[in-house]
Design a protein around this nucleic acid. Structure first.
Lengths: 317, 317
DNA sequence: ACTCATTAGTGCCATAACGGCAACAATAGA
DNA sequence: TCTATTGTTGCCGTTATGGCACTAATGAGT
């Protein structure tokens, strides 16, 4: 193992905050990281990290070396990228992350065909509803709703996602169908509560064209869309969710879009996020495959909602 | 061995023009280079070189990869440089090249003291009168007379070198002392003939201030200054040489500066040449040590030529 | 066209480096 | 004070490296 790889290990230790986590990330023993770090410092003749068993700090040399190592990593990935540009067939590992539903419904179904077309590509799909470190954990693509939080990442739109408000027929029988926002606000709600966001207010556009936030009376929270739908189907709450969460519930009559007359603002787009320009071919091809699967005009999930175009004040595309 | 080192091997093959020469440079078996190159191509999934047993050509990918590899090499050396800046003591190998006389007379004598001061520095001094590839052969410093041929190299002046015309007393007894350039031109001459330059004409500045080249009647050529002096001491030829070649011959009376009244132009400076800015500490320190040894005003070799300041129309410093 | 010196490639094998395991010391939080 | 976790290091099995020997290819010289 030579100096560049050792520098990459060093960089990962710094970025992950511990040798142990860097080792876990690399799927190697902690001793490997410890020994290679020691060797690096010996080779360079300078201490990079002051470390104890629970923490470390960068030396001045280490801080400067971190910058250099980042440049090296970028350059190395550009180098590999150059080679990949000459590949007749895409190859290598494609490491993807997305939220649970996104992954199961809209990514997983694409993979088999994709791998038939490109048998030399290995795909790893990890469903993470938490905020992940896309760069640090080595993802090629991350599928997300909303803009990325890290401005160093690049986001490319995949599809629009629009909200709708759902209730079960039994819920309506029990509470009556609400006609105004005020009436809705009094009803029990199931809301999404993920690591990074909670939807505890409903935004709508009033008659004057202003965005108004109305608190929802939360009786249930979950970080999984399917859990939310299950609660709503049980007839004990309504929910406001993006359309991609809906499967065939509306078609089957298990769920009914309610308050269709109100004007909801456009929700965040679904994006693909990745670390830097110049996607490997396999990433670009997979992105294209998912986009084709979802549909570039009307997303596939909107086909599960008859008449969706006319609801909630949506403008036709 | 991982990808960076393999890329460095690839680059060296390209720069050296053959696997065999790259192997020689690295002091490894040819099979090592062959195997690592093949591995690199396998890892990148692209052919970099089309090769036969006698030649190779770069593929398009290879050409692009060469550029990248050069950037990587530069970045790696900057990385090592950063570390070296933090060394409390200079350390590592200092690889030097110079011509034979330069090395023996003005570099070798500096090394012991230098290594007493900096015991962690290993010095390799190679005497090469041929043109060497400073970058390709991994030299830290090259000691040269005259400007470097490669504009990517940096030259820092070390000392002035001035010519003088020497003959033995016996030569003068045999041929008489020449009084004009024309008379000199008729006499047998020993001339320097290295790989890169031959001194077969004598330049002088005439009464009108113009540089005039006068052919020398060569009866002897050598690529070593000491060989030239030996021939001149034998009384069978005169020579025109830079002053640093002279040892104690003039003081002992074995050689006499002749034609002192003519005006010789300033000769090339002695330079230290190195590949790029940001010398490692040990290089800078060695440069300083040699400069101090030679003398920053009047070079040490001029002390072997009494009255040299007043000869050949030299302007005082 | 032939010969020859040199180069590139590859199988085999000894050696060195790598990576994992286990044990231990250090440490931060409870 | 205790405990869980982290970083370090000795030891050992595995893997990669590097060298040797051999072979095929090739360009220069005759």
């Amino acid at each position: 193992m030579d100096i560049t790889n050792k520098l990459m290990i060093f960089l990962e230790v710094v970025e992950q905050g511990s040798l142990a986590r860097a080792a876990e990330l690399r799927n190697v023993d902690r001793s490997v990281v410890s020994k290679q770090l020691n060797k690096l410092e010996e080779e360079l003749g300078v201490r990079l990290l002051n470390r104890s068993t629970r923490s470390f700090s960068l030396t001045a040399a280490g801080a400067e070396m971190v910058k250099k190592a980042k440049e090296l990593r970028l350059m190395l990935s550009e180098t590999v990228q150059i080679a990949e540009n000459y590949h007749s067939e895409p190859r290598g590992l494609l490491k993807l992350t997305s939220s649970s539903i996104l992954g199961k419904r809209y990514i997983q179904p694409v993979i088999n065909d994709f791998q038939k077309r490109f048998p030399q590509v290995e795909v790893e799909l990890r469903l993470e509803d938490r905020v992940v470190d896309i760069v640090g954990e080595g993802y090629d693509l991350a599928f997300r709703v909303g803009p990325p939080r890290d401005s160093n990442l690049i986001a490319r739109p995949l599809a629009r996602t629009r909200l709708l408000i759902l209730a079960a027929p039994e819920f309506i029988q029990t509470y009556g169908e609400p006609k105004t926002i005020e009436e809705l606000a009094e009803l029990p709600a199931a809301i999404y509560a993920g690591d990074s966001k909670k939807v505890h207010e409903l935004l709508h556009i009033d008659k004057n064209g202003k965005e108004v936030a109305t608190p929802m009376r939360s009786v249930y929270r979950a970080n999984d869309g399917e859990l939310l739908l299950a609660k709503v189907i049980s007839g004990t709450a309504y929910t406001a969710v993006p359309a991609f969460i809906v499967n065939d519930e509306i078609i089957k009559g298990s769920l009914i879009p309610i308050m269709q007359h109100i004007h909801l603002p456009e929700y965040h787009k679904m994006n693909v996020v990745y670390p830097h320009r110049g996607l490997p071919a396999r990433s670009q091809l997979f992105f294209d495959a998912v986009k084709e699967y979802i549909g570039s005009e009307i997303p596939i999930w909107e086909h599960n909602i008859p008449g969706f175009e006319k609801m909630y004040g949506h403008k036709p595309s």
